[in-house]
Amino acid sequence: MSVVVRTVTRLLLPAVVMFGAYVVMHGHLTPGGGFQGGAVIASAVALVVVAFGARRIRRHKETLSVLEDVGALAFVVLAFLGIGGTFFYNSLAGTGGLFGQEVAMGANPGALNTGGMLPLMNWAVGLKVLAGLGSIVLLMGLLGGDDDR
């Protein structure tokens, strides 16, 4: 792609990734969550593939595979942590520790340190969706051949 597209991509990429991380991180407070934030960050991968060509980031395919496995394993492990109650029991909610602050009932401004398991699961699923959709986009981009213009 042209130098204009490459420059705008360089400028825009941190903003896109940061917005995706924000959507994942505030998934238990605002609209959004792991799926949506992961899709936003995967669109950053698509932006890089369009602007710089898929050959440039081909070596990160293994990284994306590892990230997807880490996300899936973290999700299952977090689900097993609540096995004292049931599978997927929210064992961190309201304990006062990590993400364990009590929630004010009714409409409230929202505190980031609430939610129990939910923010951790949001991160796991966000990693998984980011890696999955990103690797699909990367594989589709690698099909084109040597069109690194």
Binding site: L29, T30, P31, G106, A107, N108, P109, G110
Partner: peptide, 12 residues
């Protein structure tokens, strides 16, 4: 309204 309590209108 959307099923989200963050800055929801009063009375949800």
């Amino acid at each position: 309204v959307a099923p989200i309590y963050t800055y929801a209108p009063q009375g949800v």
